[in-house]
Write a protein that binds this DNA or RNA. Structure first.
Lengths: 332, 332
DNA sequence: GTGAAAGCGCTAACAT
DNA sequence: ATGTTAGCGCTTTCAC
């Protein structure tokens, strides 16, 4: 084990005071060129790396951002994280990752940990952290960016895709073309998203004095959507089936085929959250390209803005990102 | 913004010294019950949360672990991360996430950041961090667990699946049953894995005085495996095709069908890294269930052991995890 | 331009 | 059982 070398060691080696070393590592302008060199040599020679913890204490900031996501959601979150990290890197921020689990106890623990760790900010993805919990966070003066939900408040910004409008616009055309038998498949893992989709559909129907009813709920006793849908489609058929995730869409595809429903001729299918797997299915599944990566990148960019106390207005509190419909073979 | 309340504030509020407060928050046994209560009340009243940064400085440890993964690999890494985090939570460790990119510059920056942040340990997933870079890390006395590669050294442990043996055992049976026309599809994103698979296959062939030759390399000018394979299978056919990832397997499935090769009758297909998507494809793709989650959980458990200076022998330096073959419809 | 010293919030001897 | 004090490694005023 090599001795932890500190700023004092460098100072001694370079024959200057620690203040000067500090100035050098922080790129202060006032240091004379030759002493800067002297110090830099010493740093090099000793292999000195400033202790970020000590810096954090002295500066009252950690240059780290906490990121909170629901557990096991990496399939949908991967690109978001990449976006976050890429931008975080640019600004030299570290990311600590926290996951929430079903148990309600967990989340308050997470908040506790986050506060204790004195992160500079926290990014929350689409999570059930309720208002009160988020309030706890802001109460401790930490800036928050929420991804996936339209929330904003003092010290809270949000970046999201408007799924309600997305599906409203899309389903409306179907409805008005007489294809009014529209169904939405439940997604237990993403209740919040499904709620938005449902609202969008209800709006379409309501505007025509009609009521949206084909919400396909997967009964608890079925382990997977696939198993239930296999039964379901034996006695049901729709003009259009909407799912949130690719795996649900593939379940529809497979079960429909197995009971002899032809897609897209007899029934159309669209998956809201597009993925590469949609393109690999046969027939290829239509979907909406959601800007995952950008959700992350934009969020982190906003976070960095929030963190500069000067630019109190260089950013929007609510940022809506748009999607692109990608028609493939399951829609006509 | 609420004033940052510190241990001094609590001490004053409770009319004790800060040492006593420190004892209370650290669960020291020696504190008298009534003063403990007094302190706890003060803590509650003031909403005090110990500053983990200051604790880190004083204790010379951060209770955080760095995790390094190749960028954009969350599809394969998600469960590993969940495993890591779940165990990390138990031991109150935080996880900072670092991603490496293609550019060689990046990795040394990451090492720099990791060292500066004084994490207690680092977990590296299957990354190209070369020996030298890893040496830099150990040189700073930080324990390392490598996931996915069999490496071990002083202060380095590894947790992995032996893909070479996996494919050796599997392909051997084919070979010895006369199905010697075996092919392996390149995976640009996972060169290290493919190398292992290749070695396994080469071993099978070598043992029979034969040479493994059917390594299907995707030429650079093709954007995707799919595009190339579509051409490839027009003039090629194998007894068995092996891919690493689900998406590659689906590409084989789709292209084979498109040129009229029937799977599994004319050609069999196996995907090493199984995923739920393999079960959604039609025909369903056979694969090996790799214990992703356990790779993470076990790694973190080992890390915690390494972190206890006493138990220098409570763990293995190399831990091999096993896989389970899941036969589906693409193999006979 | 550089150094001395106080302070960031906490822990851990050492006293009492 | 509790208080006092010296660090942990760094930044930043304030002198010089």
């Amino acid at each position: 084990m090599m001795k932890r070398i500190t700023i004092y060691d460098v100072a001694k080696e370079a024959n200057v005071s620690l203040a000067t070393v500090s100035r050098v590592i922080n790129g202060s302008e006032v240091v004379r060129e030759d002493t800067r060199l002297k110090v830099q040599e010493a740093i090099e020679k000793l292999g000195y790396k400033p202790n970020a913890i000590a810096q954090g204490l002295a500066l009252q900031k950690t240059t780290t951002i906490a990121f909170v996501i629901p557990e096991a959601s990496f399939f949908y979150t991967g690109q978001i994280i990449n976006g976050l990290i890429d931008v975080a890197k640019i600004y030299n921020y570290n990311m600590v990752l926290h996951t929430t689990t079903e148990g309600i106890l967990a989340t308050s623990d997470i908040i506790e940990t986050i506060i204790k760790s004195r992160v500079d900010g926290v990014v929350i993805f689409n999570d059930k952290l309720d208002k009160e919990e988020i309030a706890t966070l802001t109460n401790y003066d930490v800036p928050i960016v929420v991804i996936g939900n339209r929330i904003s408040d003092n010290n809270i910004c949000s970046v999201y895709v408007d799924y309600e409008t997305l599906i409203y616009d899309y389903a409306k055309r179907y409805y008005e073309n007489g294809k009014t038998n529209i169904a939405l498949v439940e997604d237990r893992k993403n209740p919040a998203m499904i709620e938005q989709l449902r609202h969008g559909l209800e709006k379409v129907f309501k505007e025509h004095g009609d009521t949206f009813e084909n919400y396909i709920k997967i009964p608890k006793e079925y382990r997977s959507s696939y198993e239930y849908l296999k039964e379901y489609f034996k006695t049901n058929k729709h003009d259009l089936v909407i799912t949130y995730r690719d795996s649900q869409a593939m379940a529809v595809l497979n079960t429909a085929r197995e009971v002899g429903i032809s897609i897209p001729d007899e029934m159309e299918l669209v998956c809201v959250l597009d993925s590469k797997y949609n393109a690999m299915a046969r027939p290829q599944i239509s979907g909406f390209k959601i800007p995952d990566y950008d959700l992350g990148a934009v969020s982190m960019r906003i976070m960095t803005k929030m963190l500069q106390d000067d630019a109190k207005d260089g950013y929007n509190k609510e940022t809506e990102l748009s999607y692109i419909f990608t028609p493939r073979e399951t829609t006509k």
